Every structure is written in structure tokens, then in C-alpha cells.
Amino acid sequence: MPKRGSGKPTVYTYPAGKALASITGKVKTISRQNLNRPLAVLLHRLAPVLRGRVNYFRHGTSKATFDYLRHYAWRRVII
């Protein structure tokens, strides 16, 4: 695809749908396990999982995927 602004051809890499399904499954499992525990415990368990996944995919074009994941994790924690 052409790079925005310069028009030069560039290769963009996106996280696969299978990888996104894997991390959303982990978030769902962790949030279900900690239903009757304090918020601090839930966040303490979610943080390393999310941080590891984001660090793994940070080199690609992942902004839209990270936004979706952030929204998904937020909804799982709040609800």
C-alpha cells in the first residue's frame, strides 16, 4: 500500500484475527475468575497479559486493534 503523505510503497502488518481472539479470550477468562475480588486484584492480573500482547504487536500497524482491545478490556472490567 502507498505510505500516507509520500506515496511510496510500504508493507503494513496487522495482528491476525486469531491472535485477537486469543487475547480477548484471555481477558474474558481472567475477568470471569475475579468476579468477587477487588478491582485492584483484577487489574493486577490483567495488566501483564495486556502489556505482553501489546509489546509483541507494537512493531506493526496495530492502532485500530489496540483501540478495540482497550475498549473490550474496559467493558469487561466495568460490567
Rank of each mutant, 00 (worst) to 15 (best):
G60M: 09
V41D: 02
A40G: 04
K63T: 11
Y56S: 04
S6E: 03
A73W: 03
K63P: 05
R58S: 10
N36T: 10
L42P: 02
I30P: 02
I30M: 10
P2L: 14
G52V: 07
S62E: 03
G17R: 15
K3E: 13
R75H: 15
Y12Q: 12
K26E: 14
Q33L: 09
G17L: 09
H44V: 00
N34V: 01
I78K: 13
P9A: 13
P48E: 06
W74V: 09
Q33D: 12
I79Y: 14
I23G: 00
R53K: 08
A73E: 04
V54P: 01
G17N: 15
T24Q: 12
T29N: 11
V54M: 11
S31R: 05
M1H: 14
T29W: 07
G25M: 07
L35P: 03
G5D: 07
T10Y: 11
N36W: 09
R53N: 10
R45F: 01
G52S: 08
L69H: 02
R4A: 15
F66A: 05
Q33A: 09
T29P: 04
L46R: 01
R53T: 02
A19N: 11
P48Q: 06
G60W: 02
L46M: 04
H44S: 05
P38V: 00
P2D: 09
N55L: 09
T29K: 13
A73S: 11
A64T: 10
V27M: 05
K28Q: 10
R76M: 12
A47S: 09
V49Y: 05
S6V: 08
R32F: 02
R58F: 07
G7L: 10
R75D: 13
F66P: 03
A40T: 14
V11M: 13
Y56F: 11
F66L: 08
K63M: 06
N36E: 12
P48M: 06
R51F: 06
K18P: 02
Q33I: 01
K63H: 11
I78V: 15
D67S: 12
L35S: 09
R45L: 03
S62H: 08
T65R: 00
K28M: 08
T61C: 09
V27E: 03
M1D: 14
N34F: 05
R70K: 14
M1K: 14
T29F: 09
N36L: 06
I78F: 11
S6H: 03
T10G: 01
W74Q: 10
A64K: 15
H59Q: 07
V49P: 04
G17Q: 13
A21C: 06
Y56D: 10
K18Y: 08
K28G: 13
K8S: 10
V11D: 06
N36A: 04
I30L: 13
S31F: 03
